[in-house]
């Protein structure tokens, strides 16, 4: 055997021994604090109510709505097609196949943004991706689509277009083209709970 081969093999083995005796590093799968800070500062985790409404109306197969409120609140009403993973069970391994995957865009929501944001942070620390937060939660969703104000005549076209879109969304939810109230009086909104057609597809595994 050529001396060159022996020499190169010896170098490989020496390096192998060096890496084998190096002390092991922390092998937790959690995200590092510096990385976590960058993730928290990045606001792309928030999806606007308009974007989420668009997903719902177009019945996007690759978006999974996840209600992190209690099962009782979920049973009362939720967004169409949403599944329930209560905040206190968010780290339950039986939900990992839903929360840690790269096929579906998960949208976490609660009444406001607090519980959904906390859920997102926990999932991010676990290193799970593809999870987003409904900005403002259900409160903002209702305020945007069911308590909206009519645009003024002098408002730019973008505002009028947005109003038309939101009116369409309201119609989708209520089945009514009614203009609704423009004051701040709270109207009881009956959100239709629609069974997810692709329930058996959830999680992709």
């Amino acid at each position: 055997m050529k001396k060159r081969y022996v020499f190169l093999s010896a170098i490989a083995i020496i390096f192998g021994i060096i890496v084998a005796v190096l002390p092991a590093k922390d092998v937790k799968n959690e995200i590092q604090p510096e990385q976590m800070l960058l993730e928290i500062l990045d606001e792309t985790r928030f999806l606007s109510v308009d974007k989420v409404a668009e997903y719902i109306v177009e019945q996007n197969r690759f978006v999974l709505l996840i209600d992190v409120r209690t099962p009782e609140k979920y049973a009362e009403w939720t967004l169409p097609g949403a599944i329930n993973i209560p905040f206190d069970s968010i780290l339950n391994p039986s939900y990992e196949y839903i929360l840690n995957q790269d096929v579906y865009t998960n949208v976490l929501f609660s009444n406001g943004s607090v519980y959904s944001s906390q859920s997102w942070i926990l999932l991010k620390r676990k290193g799970f991706s593809n999870n987003y937060v409904l900005d403002g939660g259900l409160n903002k969703f209702i305020e945007t689509f069911f308590m909206m104000k009519k645009p003024k005549i002098e408002d730019p076209n973008e505002v009028k277009d947005l109003y038309q879109f939101r009116k369409g969304v309201r119609q989708y939810f209520t089945g009514s083209g009614d203009e609704g109230s423009s004051d701040n009086t709270k109207t009881e909104v009956k959100v239709i709970i629609k069974k997810d057609k692709n329930k058996e597809d959830e999680g992709g595994c």
Binding site: S9, A12, I13, F15, G16, V19, A20, V21, L22, A24
Partner: peptide
């Protein structure tokens, strides 16, 4: 450890080199 596996892998590679030679 990752490093120990790398050492095993180097030995497997060297064994493969000798065999194919």
């Amino acid at each position: 450890k990752d490093g120990l596996f790398v050492l095993f892998f180097i030995l497997i590679a060297l064994g493969a080199f000798a065999t194919v030679h």
